[in-house]
Design a protein around this nucleic acid. Structure first.
Length: 821
RNA sequence: GCGAGAAUGGCGGAAUUGGUAGACGCGCUAGACUUAGGAUCUAGUACCGAGAGGUGUCGGGGUUCGAGUCCCCGUUUUCGCACCA
């Protein structure tokens, strides 16, 4: 009989539901384990295989922990604010709230069909005022500490749609995805969170958490700490100074020009008469370029002179000031000193515009008068550098910095690539920013008692050039909390990364109304023990959450320094080479598989496909393999139905008295448990399942075992099934004769260590590193014993004839290698 | 462009610290069973070769008794790059 998943799976889900098996008692904290997957964005595309790939294997890990006695908390919620719902509204007229709620209801039903251990009492929706109220509260706390502030920042602007565009709405050729016009960069006043105040701790904290090394490295690179010196260049004939940042003050004598970012405020100020037109024209030209294009090292460098001249502080030399787009206003001071002899970008630029190139660092083994054919960017001996000539770069960096500091011409400075977090969005579907702009008092925060500032339902979200909220008179007009005068609310909303930077606290008490969360509870449960989600969040969400966590700690809201102790990234599931998305039309609907095979077969297949961290291109080719495995498992238990009622197995057996078949099965069962423990613990589900398949292949001889060994084996097999195929396992456990639920009364079997050691073992025999045969020897045999076997082996000895043995390498239980000449 | 991964049969993938390459599964081949089925069971399946044997882990070098694994050079490919989440 085929496994009737269509009856059995809903039956067990109902049982779990009715008995509240997945509701975590959060007051019990002794063996607490907080397992979290990144919450879902409720798009109209619903759940696809990529979501299942994220959730089902993580649930297997969580269930494994639960069976091992942990009090596991595994919640799920909706990251419900965001751009796609708003775009959808612009296109169709369907309100973001309505489409989001519809999507959530559909997705919830789908999520329930996976059979994960989600505690639905903890469900969260970030678009509800009871949630985003605390985003606003968080904003106010940051504001109070001076960590939320406004400044100008460039945004992608479509002049035809009259709106700000997300990077993803700008196509690769720089045009708007909606109308095709060329997108420009426009400066707008924006809200920022001062994440840079925490930069050192964000770096050092990485050493304290168990995250993939590559993710930590990405964060380190993102933060981009660099130790250097700021150098002041006076502008000739003007009171202005240009401050540049350099990590190579030892090359200061090689400066032949200075470059300002085109957006730098000094550009217009310094440009002299005849150059004004060309500079203005240049600034116009580069408006449509993205940062990636601007910094590309293959793109032809562009730039124009400003006519102004800077004075090198160490030698008084006058050098021209240029503006060029390879200098970014967002990094360092927005100005660089150009040393074409020792910087690749400067070299290219100087070549193109015929600017002088001067050698000031000598590469070891070369001559001072050799012409530079490319920039020499490493350290070396300083030349042409006044009194510093002859020093090695490291010493020169130190001495020149000291000289600059002593003469008030500069100072040592640590720079970071990390920029403050731009959190304002000129959009509707997000958390309103709780600030009122008063003509007299300026920016005034909304009183905490007046939170939430509710997002109004009625609004014109079609682009008009302004944030959609500014068109809602009722919303936008307010009284100044300080002086009572007529004032305007801030029309912007927050980046959705604000929502996701603290949601793991809120899951623990989603309806708590007195504070952002109940500290007495979160202190026991936070940090999250295991966090699973896509690697695409490596630098943004995962950095923002760490920042907010540290901020909340400084407010006294948590004792921990880091939000996520352990992090795992699932791989990306692509289809026809592309990430699954509705717009590409390559979404694979998991429902097709759950209808045909059931949830357990599908989740088994997702785990069996390959390494969890790797992902891969979607194919359903192998699903019949896991289906067969499920069928065979079900059949196996039916064959021994009820056996566990009459026969009780011991927890361990003496091995010697067992028959050969029993021995082999007993050993395999224990080896499989050992392997399963090891593999599932580290999210290696594919090999864990392969191990179980090996076991069931061996169990074709189970009827040759005593009833006790049969029960011993089957109860262990059922329990191994439980994390990977929970519905099936519950059913099998019951068929065997148990009247309890595995997840209601968790069971896990420990390995019988003495069953793991095999009596004998195959040892590879090599001659000159080439395999010639294997010999079977008792486990842990020493070299002399193995040598005797080897030397009797003709397949080996025929390669030794007439040769001289030079060396013999013996590795116990593994290899015997004879080197001959 | 910059940064970070990956590359093993026809396919998905296994392979503690360097120690028998191809576990497990798909597919395929042959057979069994059968009021015939896209079901189940048994056997085989890296490549070349009749065999002995030889060759094989993206390409090219290197270290080592021994390299899929370590080092150098290159190719291809996936992901991220600050307003998608």
């Amino acid at each position: 009989m085929r496994y009737p998943f269509a009856e059995i799976e809903p039956k067990w889900r109902k049982f779990w539901d009715n008995n509240k098996i997945h509701q975590t008692d959060l007051s019990k904290t002794d063996d607490k384990l907080y397992t979290l997957v990144m919450f879902i964005y409720p798009s109209g595309a619903k759940l696809h295989c990529g979501h299942w790939y994220n959730y089902a294997p993580t649930d297997t890990w969580a269930r494994y922990k639960k069976l091992n006695g942990y009090n596991v908390f595994e919640p799920m919620g909706y990251d419900a604010f965001g751009l796609p719902a708003e775009n959808y509204a612009i296109k169709t007229g369907i309100h973001p709230y309505d489409s989001t709620m519809t999507n959530i209801n559909d997705i919830r039903a789908q999520l329930k069909s996976i059979g994960c251990m989600y505690d639905w009492d903890a469900e969260l929706m970030t678009c509800k005022p009871e949630y985003y109220k605390w985003n606003q509260w968080l904003f106010l706390q940051l504001y109070k500490k001076g960590l939320a502030y406004r400044k100008n920042a460039p945004v992608n602007w479509c002049p035809s749609c009259n709106t700000v565009l997300a990077n993803e709405q700008v196509q690769s050729d720089g045009s708007c995805e909606r109308c095709g016009s060329i997108v420009i960069q426009k400066a707008l006043t924006q809200w920022f969170f001062k994440i840079t105040d925490y930069v050192e701790e964000l770096l050092s904290g990485l050493d304290t958490i168990t995250w993939p090394e590559k993710t930590k490295l990405m964060q380190r690179n993102w933060i981009g700490k660099s130790i250097g010196t700021e150098v002041k260049f006076k502008v000739d004939g003007s009171g202005e100074d240009i401050t540049v940042f350099t990590t190579r003050p030892d090359t200061l004598f090689g400066v032949t020009y200075v470059v300002l970012a085109p957006e730098h405020t000094l550009v217009d100020k310094l440009t002299t008469g005849e150059f004004k037109d060309s500079v203005a024209k240049y600034k116009e030209e580069i408006k449509s370029l993205s940062e990636i294009e601007r910094t590309s090292t293959v793109k032809e460098k562009t730039g124009v002179p400003t006519g102004a001249v800077a004075i090198n502080p160490v030698n008084g030399e006058k050098v021209p000031i240029w503006t060029a787009d390879y200098v970014l206003s967002t990094y360092g001071t927005g100005c660089v000193m150009a040393v074409p002899g020792h910087d690749e970008r400067d070299f290219q630029f100087a070549k193109k515009f015929n600017l002088p190139i001067r050698k000031v660092i000598l590469k070891a083994g070369t001559n001072e008068n050799d012409e530079l054919t490319e920039a020499f960017t490493e350290s070396g001996t300083m030349v042409n550098s006044g009194s510093f000539t002859g020093m090695f770069s490291e010493e020169g960096i130190d001495k020149i910095s000291l000289y600059l500091e002593e003469n008030n011409l500069g100072k040592r400075k640590t720079n970071y690539r990390l920029r403050d977090w731009l959190i304002s969005r000129q959009r509707y579907w997000g958390t309103p920013i709780p600030i009122i702009h008063c003509p007299d008092c300026g920016e005034v925060p909304v009183e905490e008692d007046n939170l939430p500032v509710e997002l109004p339902y009625d609004v014109e979200f079609k682009p008009s050039g302004d944030s959609p909220l500014s068109s809602n008179e009722k919303f936008i007009n307010a009284k100044c909390p300080k002086c009572g005068a007529d004032a305007k609310r801030d029309p912007d909303t927050m980046d959705t990364f604000v929502d996701s930077s603290w949601y793991y606290f809120r899951y623990l008490n989603p309806r708590f109304s007195e504070d952002i969360f109940d500290k007495s509870r979160t202190d026991k449960w936070v940090p999250v023990d295991m966090y699973v989600g896509g690697a695409e969040h490596a630098t943004m969400h995962l950095l923002y959450a760490r920042f907010i966590h540290k901020f909340l700690r400084d407010l006294g809201y948590t004792a921990s320094d880091e939000p996520f102790k352990h992090l795992v990234h699932q791989g990306t599931i692509t289809n026809q080479g592309a990430k699954m998305s509705k717009s590409k039309g390559n979404v694979v609907n998991p429902d097709d598989f759950t209808i045909n095979y059931g949830a357990d077969v599908f989740r088994l297949y997702l785990m069996f496909m390959g390494p969890y961290e790797l992902g891969g291109d979607w194919s359903d080719k192998g699903i019949s393999g896991t289906d067969r495995f499920v069928q065979r498992s079900y059949e196996l238990f039916n064959k021994f139905s009820g056996l566990g009622k009459d026969v009780k197995a011991k927890s361990e057996y003496e091995i010697a008295p067992l028959s050969a078949v029993e021995k082999s099965i007993y050993r395999k069962v224990n080896q499989t448990i050992r392997k399963f423990d090891e593999e599932v613990e580290h999210f290696r589900f594919n090999t864990a399942i392969a191990g179980m398949m090996e076991l069931i292949n061996e169990l074709k001889n189970l009827d040759q075992c005593s009833k006790e060994i049969q029960v011993y084996t089957l109860e262990r097999f059922a329990v191994l099934l439980a994390p990977v195929a929970p519905h099936l396992a519950e059913e099998c456990w019951q068929i065997l004769g148990n009247d309890t639920s595995l997840f209601q009364k968790p069971v896990w079997f420990t390995v019988d260590e003495k069953a793991l050691i095999a009596d004998s073992i195959n040892i590879a025999v090599q001659v000159n590193g080439k395999l010639r045969d294997t010999v079977e020897a008792a486990t842990d045999s020493d070299q002399a014993v193995v040598k005797e076997l080897v030397m009797q082996n003709e397949k080996v000895t025929k390669y030794l004839d007439g040769k001289q043995i030079v060396k013999e390498i013996f590795v116990k239980n593994k290899i015997y290698n004879i080197v001959v000449r």
